[in-house]
Design a protein around this nucleic acid. Structure first.
Lengths: 130, 130
DNA sequence: ACTAATGTATTAGTTCTCTAATACACCCAG
DNA sequence: CTGGGTGTATTAGAGAACTAATACATTAGT
């Protein structure tokens, strides 16, 4: 797993790791059940303290992205089947509300937001081969 | 303007002010051009330091919600006309991407997200009389 | 010009966040 | 049961965030 972190861009290291792993999972580059590098290995690779990696993994676990087991290692969790649909939607509520509120401030309509989402979504995974 | 802040809920005071003012504006309870209480007045009302209120107002100004002028006071800005449309959409990009990423993690489709947004939007301002 | 009201700037102290150093606990292959 | 590999816990220190105390600068009315 190849990650790239910057020590001076202001955003915390552990958060950079979280974001990049989340991206890899979302992009399908890390499949459910796949092994994530051990804390020490990734720490050495990135030249940072193991605790910082542990912090990142802990956050990923808290969000249900990965599953950690002492002695065994860390793997990508099977989010798809773990939560019922209504629970997933509940998790998505706050960020959705935040987006709508910001749009409202800017006097943009719901349809504007939806159009923006479609555009962004298309840009994120360009379903080229279909 | 009636605000309610909690000193021990963890979230910074200035941020609570920001959120509540943003809500009042979004809900139409504070119209464009309306006066916001002077820094000292609100500070005294909330029993906090004027600097904390100033910090909140500064943030609101930075986001284009209010307009401050020394000697005169602070008023609700006319967001609608201040920014060009493409700039508004640009501001909405990051939260939109964040929402899509989270949805992807949960294996929810774009259409699911859009449906959720419509639902939330309807709940936020229940255009009852239509 | 004066004055009262407003936002602005400087400084400081407390608390929280982030990272690290180090030691501990668990799991599994041999 | 032992050893190497794994995640976990404790402590500490540097830095940033938050709030406050206090003084300064600008505006508008008189």
């Amino acid at each position: 797993m190849q990650l790239r972190i910057s020590l001076q861009d202001g955003t915390p290291i552990y958060q950079q790791i979280v974001e990049q792993v989340k991206y890899l999972v979302a992009a399908g580059r890390l499949k459910s059940g796949a092994d994530i590098p051990p804390i020490r290995v990734l720490a050495e690779q990135l030249r940072i303290n193991p605790n910082t990696v542990a912090r990142a993994y802990l956050e990923l676990q808290r969000e249900g992205i990965v599953s950690m087991r002492q002695g065994t290692g860390t793997t990508v969790a099977e989010v798809k089947t773990l939560l019922p649909r209504r629970e997933k939607l509940r998790l998505l509520g706050p960020p959705a509300d935040g987006l709508l509120t910001r749009a409202r401030h800017l006097d943009l309509s719901l349809e504007d937001v939806i159009a923006l989402l479609r555009e962004r979504d298309a840009a994120m995974h360009p379903e080229s081969t279909r």
